[in-house]
Design a protein around this nucleic acid. Structure first.
Lengths: 164, 164
DNA sequence: GCGTCGTGTTTGACATGTCAAGCAGACTGT
DNA sequence: ACAGTCTGCTTGACATGTCAAACACGACGC
């Protein structure tokens, strides 16, 4: 009844799983050793630093990096204690909170980015040739097109079935 | 000085990151909804169930699934409370602990496996054609060959430089 | 035999993530 | 204008992961 994975399929799947485990581990380690930041810190800092004024609404930021709002709120508090960001009350909407990079946060992400790119190159990008990169982009494109239907990207369009 | 990522490289890297985030999220959700297991539970159960006698030394299991021993020890305790596994003292070496599947654990992984494979097919494998799968296997092969040098697979061969 | 060290595992304190309330500012209809 | 509801965020209780210390057995040298 069940269609099990063929050998080729299994190799691809296990390869992905193992890649994911080891690559993330290595990148995380490098980041911590090089810059004293966690993956989480890096995602927040780099995303906010791309936004105009180095500031971003909390909810938007959460959506962008696919975190729960609650997780982000907790994490921003911790980053606040370390002086990397501050919260700012938005003028137009009293409920909303805005995450703002401090000078220290901006310095941290600038310093980290160079080393992070080097790490990504060393352990991933530079190991692959252009055909590999193209294939990877194709693959993630196909899968993401599917997943972004299944996982409601907006609070809107809710009734999507999860099993088909 | 720093070699930033080209557009193609950036697309490939961000694609991978986003794929990793969303695919894992979806697979985890399905697993929890279908079988009441976490990813962590599934990794432990499926690995132990492949071992002869449905039993495995704690340290070996940890190495196999790339967890810290401590994490596994904690997690085995929790799984023990849920009746999925037990600890068994090894006869030959008094220090060592062995993780053994209970009948309930065996039943759980058998039931979960079918649904998990279906989920993996639905959200990943069946979206890709044979060329994609082959490319993925190539890519993970290249990267893992590198990473398994960098990350000491054994407690032996320690002095490996992390930056080269 | 018996200190000493190495190895495999457990434990406790703490960091991080999740889930379900709680809360306060904004919208809506009357 | 104000009761009810919605929305965006915060909070607290709890689950999970990490790190370093403790532990307990085994192996080795004397």
């Amino acid at each position: 009844m069940t269609r099990w994975l063929t050998d080729d399929e299994m190799r691809a799947w296990l390869g992905y799983r193992r890649l994911r485990t080891l690559l993330d581990l290595q990148i995380t380690r490098d980041l911590a050793a090089d810059s004293g930041l966690s993956d989480a810190d890096y995602d927040v800092l780099s995303t906010v630093s791309d936004a105009p004024g180095h500031r971003m609404r909390l909810g938007e930021l959460a959506a962008e990096i696919k975190w729960s709002v609650s997780r982000l709120s907790h994490h921003v508090s911790r980053m606040g204690q370390r002086g990397l960001v501050t919260r700012d009350d938005c003028a137009s909407d009293g409920r909303s909170a805005t995450v703002v990079l401090t000078d220290e946060g901006w310095a941290a992400i600038q310093a980290a980015a160079k080393l992070h790119v080097a790490s990504v190159r060393r352990h991933f990008i530079d190991l692959l040739d252009p055909a590999d990169l193209a294939a990877l982009t194709t693959i993630s494109g196909k899968v993401l097109a599917h997943l972004e239907q299944v996982t409601p990207p907006d609070p809107a369009r809710r009734g999507t079935r999860r099993h088909d």
